[in-house]
Simulated assay, not measured.
Amino acid sequence: MQLFLALCFLLGIPSGAPDIHSAKLFYTASTEVPNFPEFVVVVLIDELQVMYYDSNTRRAVPKQDWANRMTEDVPTYYESQTQYLMGSQQTFKANIEIVKQRLNQTGGLHIVQNMYGCEWDDETDEVNGFRQFGYDGEDFIVYDLKTETFIAPVQQAVPTKHKWENNKAEMAYWKNYLTQECVGWLKKYVEFGRSSLMRKDLPSVSLLQKTPSSPLTCHATGFYPDRADLFWKKDEEELHEDVVKGEILPNHDGSFQMSVDLDLSGLKDEDWGRYSCVFHLAGGQEVSKRLDKREIRTNIITNWGNDDRGVTGGGLPTGAVVGIVVVAVLVLAGIGLAVWLKKRPQGFKPTNTSETSSSSGEDPAEKKGSSEEQSMLKPSA
């Protein structure tokens, strides 16, 4: 999958089966990006931001009230995360310069990113892990848990792939981390935040049209989570032709909105009743709105608002205000990596990685600038 530099992500629960939970951890280090911190760390549980750190504030802070409960087990949880991330910040800053040298680059805007985490199905107890690295918005190297190998989409990553795969102890460590330790912390977060993470709200659905010749828009807003689909169907068959589906967008209140357009140019009057717009929320709940001329709302207040189709004027609803937040999307340049092993890290902690590092267990936060690579926060069970 092509990774791109995105500075926004949607807060909510991810698409997928309703019983699957996820922990995703993102590091983003950058140079010469205007009005953006040089180093950002974001921790998401079910795509809901639960912790944040950046090089401007230099503090790891909870982003949900219930995330404060992590201190019930570890009273100094966030203070500990702050200390580790301050060390990671220095390492990532050095990493960018090393990557630039290896790629014969000089100054300018550059991004180093890393994402890893795990998924857990609370019905089947099935788990999965993922780990991806990249540079300047492009895939650099990706870990495949099933085969326990690395995929190098660019030639420059092949030496790193071989080096990491030959480090058997490190490979075993990451397999255990992604399938055991990460899942342990994910379950704890889900336990504390279940009321928010399991919330489900159905939307209001409206039919909108700008002019008589414009596509007809089915707009759903106010739903939660964003594991949802919106589509047009004729009789009982979902339509794919003459349909344009929009993206799911966040509202200011934490809910979501989306829309799907239908081209009416070839629609016969006698067939209107055969069409309907269907909203489907993960878990099986649905809202269906049959195509009815009397239900269409328009932003054109003219005589057309009372034409022979029965369309009424009055204006399109203003909709919800879209809220946008920073995302550090997948990626960290993979120039030589070997993770500093720690037996029992307390919570999500950073670990240094280097082509020359050992597995002595030395605290990576105290060895600033010594490594060429830095992985992300690592939860322990």
Rank of each mutant, 00 (worst) to 15 (best):
P18G: 03
Y27P: 00
P18H: 08
P62N: 04
P37G: 08
G16T: 11
T57P: 10
A67Y: 01
E47W: 11
I45G: 01
T57G: 09
S80D: 09
T28M: 09
K24E: 12
D65T: 08
L25E: 09
N56G: 06
L11Q: 15
M51F: 01
I45S: 05
T31D: 05
P62W: 04
L10R: 15
I20V: 14
L48N: 12
R58H: 02
S30Y: 10
E32F: 13
R58D: 03
E32C: 12
A17E: 13
C8F: 14
S55M: 00
T28L: 11
S55D: 00
E47Q: 13
D65K: 07
E72A: 03
A29M: 08
Y78I: 04
P18I: 07
P37H: 04
D65C: 05
A23G: 14
G16K: 09
N35C: 15
E79H: 05
S22Q: 12
F26Y: 10
A60V: 03
P34W: 07
S80F: 11
Q64R: 04
P37E: 07
A60E: 01
A23Y: 11
D19H: 13
P14F: 13
S80R: 11
S15P: 12
D73G: 10
S15H: 11
R59I: 01
P75H: 02
E79W: 07
Q64M: 03
D73E: 14
F9Q: 14
Y53Q: 01
Y53S: 01
V42F: 00
L25A: 12
D65H: 08
A6F: 15
T76W: 03
P62R: 00
S22L: 10
S55P: 02
M51Q: 05
S30A: 14
D46Y: 02
L7R: 15
M51A: 06
T31V: 09
R69E: 08
L7E: 15
N56I: 06
I45D: 02
F26P: 02
F26L: 08
E79F: 07
L44T: 10
V42L: 07
E72L: 07
Y53C: 02
E72T: 04
E72I: 03
T31K: 09
V33Y: 12
L48A: 10
H21T: 09
V42D: 02
Y77C: 02
R58E: 07
Y77H: 01
A67S: 01
V61I: 04
V42E: 05
D19S: 10
I45L: 02
V50D: 05
Y78G: 01
E79C: 05
L11T: 15
A29W: 06
D73I: 11
E32V: 10
Q64G: 01
V40N: 05
D73F: 13
Y77A: 06
A29K: 06
S55G: 05
E32W: 10
M70G: 09
